[in-house]
């Protein structure tokens, strides 16, 4: 479904991604793990058109989407839940959700809104509240709900566990799995390697803008190298 081929990308003259190739199969959950600063967010930004790709291709459903305007990526069927949630705090909960369906019709948006509210009854209760007043966990649910309002085929999540209490993190991950079971393909960038590898089918390990390892998530979870660098030692994010 998504295929990143030999992508070089960065900010200005600084190259962050140095030839990254990975693929995400339809219906799967794929994790991208790595320490802070490894380039996970840059990969997401390259896919959503927010970082220029200097060479290489990003193919989604057979088409190269590298270089299309950022605001057209969502129309292709890719939604991103950005790092730090980025809920639009001056907008109400409901407005934030409708924002996610900006490119869709009114009726479709209303249907999706019902669906999101059925997943997160707490958001329904708080629909008229300014979204800045929600708790961190609720904001994460809102950010995921907003991304789902576009009815994406591929959902990208950038550090969904960041800044959340462990119990809330588990709740968020359970929900991501549920979305996947209902048919959404998931590509997850996460510092919390144990959580991410525990859920994903396949995973890539990113270090300094290059993929240093890949394989079925379960195998990586038991690989000595990964355990040492990302699960046991000081390198572990959370």
């Amino acid at each position: 479904m998504l295929e990143v081929r030999e992508v070089h990308a960065g900010y200005g003259k600084t190259e962050v991604l140095r030839g990254v190739s990975l693929s995400v199969k339809e219906g799967s959950i794929v994790a991208l793990v790595g320490a802070n600063g490894a380039g996970k967010t840059t990969i997401m930004a390259a896919i959503t058109g927010h970082v220029p790709v200097s060479s290489g291709q990003i193919r989604f459903q057979g088409e190269n989407i590298a270089g299309i305007p950022a605001h057209q990526v969502v129309v292709r069927g890719i939604s991103l839940v950005p790092e730090g949630r980025q809920v639009v705090s001056p907008l109400s909960v409901e407005e934030n959700l409708f924002l996610g369906a900006h490119t869709r019709g009114k009726k479709e948006a209303a249907e999706s809104l019902d669906r999101v509210f059925s997943w997160f009854p707490r958001l329904r209760e708080r629909r008229a509240q300014k979204s800045g007043s929600l708790s961190g966990g609720e904001q994460q649910m809102l950010a995921i709900g907003r991304a789902m309002m576009a009815k994406p085929k591929l959902l990208l999540l950038d550090e969904p566990s960041m800044g959340l209490a462990p119990l809330v993190v588990s709740e968020v991950f359970r929900f991501i799995r549920k979305l996947n079971e209902e048919g959404t393909t998931v590509f997850l960038g996460e510092q919390n390697a144990r959580k991410a590898l525990g859920m994903a089918e396949y995973a890539y390990v990113l270090e300094d803008g290059e993929l240093i390892m890949e394989g079925p998530a379960r195998r990586l979870l038991s690989s000595e190298q990964v355990v040492e660098a990302y699960l046991g030692g000081a390198g572990d994010g959370i």
Partner: peptide
């Protein structure tokens, strides 16, 4: 809808683009 787009761009052009709004 246009007002919401304007307010979202004011908050963050990047978030606006993710939602499909042309800055």
């Amino acid at each position: 809808r246009m007002g919401r787009a304007i307010r979202t761009v004011a908050f963050s052009p990047r978030v606006a683009e993710l939602a499909g709004i042309s800055v």
